[in-house]
Design a protein around this nucleic acid. Structure first.
Lengths: 223, 223
DNA sequence: GGAACAAGATTGTAGAACAATCAACAGGCC
DNA sequence: GGCCTGTTGATTGTTCTACAATCTTGTTCC
């Protein structure tokens, strides 16, 4: 469960399955911009690179395809999924609905004694990252933030589905400095609403955040 | 795209990939109740049954796992996912949000000239199926109904994510006669709201439907 | 009856092998 | 020169074999 979040531990451990190693390795590459949308994935290359059999690569590719990270087509090398503006907006519609639900559930289930620490820790990690800023550090912190929210909400189906939203690709294609600023205030609002226990307020805050992202993308695209 | 809906064409065609054949075959088994939650999947058995290599089976299993249809654990045969009442309700929360979004988008984008026929056809298929009623026939018609709605809405991300909701499992575990009756009136309401073009009304109708399902499950579980 | 061991079943993994398909390039034809 | 076409190499789709690691089950011994 929540296997997708285990991006945190890198391509190191051998106790992970071979296909898992490939899967995580590619996700990490994507996050670190070592792979860009449109880039093709060659089975034999990946097999050599990760020191695994071609089978394992193919299994990883199946999972990436279901997750919408890559765009497979019969008898051709799959490529990192490219999305145009229209599809980006579609993804944001889905993200608004599910992020709203996640915040709603978290606010509803919030228990200070149990959840306050984890939430504050995740928030602090977000605040501290913008200075040193490795390329993927902020992404990791953001993922952790959402992971905590999902965990508080306690909806396992949402925990499973949420990482499948194509936000990866959006963040990998669009990266505006305004996004960085905006996010912190939005995240704080979401956290405060969750702590306050007002589910509808938390849902609004989450939806607002997604709409802010939409506005910035639309604006930056207009130029 | 929308590969998951291709359950319609069965295990026949050889033009499908081997792993695809296994994937669809298992989904079909699940729908026809030939496989029940908790049942284990043995790689070699499936390979023999579908006349494919073990690799292909493993690829199919990866996809089923990501989709939440099966519950894999290291070094053990994966089993069809079992869900308790609590998780069922969690799934319904997600279903309410995404079904609502689907109906909303469809109502917003509805164009009579282009969409009326498909919607009416899907609706008619639903009305006609309860008499002859093979076991999976209603499921097929329902899937087609949702497929049309998603297609009208035109949100590709939602089309991708929607079939990943664990409704399969719910319908496979709970099957009350009340469900059958209820659905038709609900579906008509959804269709009418979509045709009317009132997005909020359509969203409400969809959410109401999911809540009706929830109520029936809760009631049938209380006994 | 319970614990330790042995045998079989099943998964995890790598690799070889081959057909089918695709992409790119070369060569010939108009 | 430009266009069609065949060849060639690259890549995927697929099955098979092989073996280690692990789980499961049944048996034996105390």
């Amino acid at each position: 469960m929540a296997e997708d979040f285990d991006l945190n531990d890198a391509s190191d451990a051998t106790h992970l399955g071979a296909s898992q190693r490939v899967y995580l390795g590619i996700m990490e590459d994507l996050e670190a911009r070592r792979m860009v949308p449109g880039q093709r994935l060659i089975e034999t290359d990946l097999a050599k690179r990760f020191n695994v059999g071609r089978n394992a690569v193919r299994e990883a590719i199946q999972r990436l395809a279901v997750r919408g990270v890559i765009d497979p087509s019969r008898n051709k090398s799959p490529a990192i999924r490219c999305i145009d503006l229209k599809e980006t907006l579609e993804i944001l519609d889905v993200a608004a609905a599910l992020t709203g639900l996640a915040a709603h559930a978290a606010a509803r289930a919030f228990d200070a004694a149990q959840d306050q620490l984890a939430l504050d820790t995740a928030m602090a990690a977000l605040e501290n990252v913008d200075t040193d800023s490795g390329p993927g550090h902020f992404s990791r912190a953001r993922r952790q933030f959402y992971r905590v929210i999902l965990s508080i909400g306690g909806n396992r189906e949402l925990e499973r589905l949420f990482p499948a939203i194509g936000m990866h690709i959006i963040y990998s294609q669009f990266q505006s400095p305004k996004l960085q600023q905006l996010r912190m205030t939005d995240y704080r609002a979401i956290r405060d609403a969750i702590v306050s226990g007002n589910a509808n307020c938390a849902e609004s805050a989450a939806r607002n955040h997604v709409e802010h992202v939409r506005a910035i993308i639309l604006k930056s695209e207009q130029e």
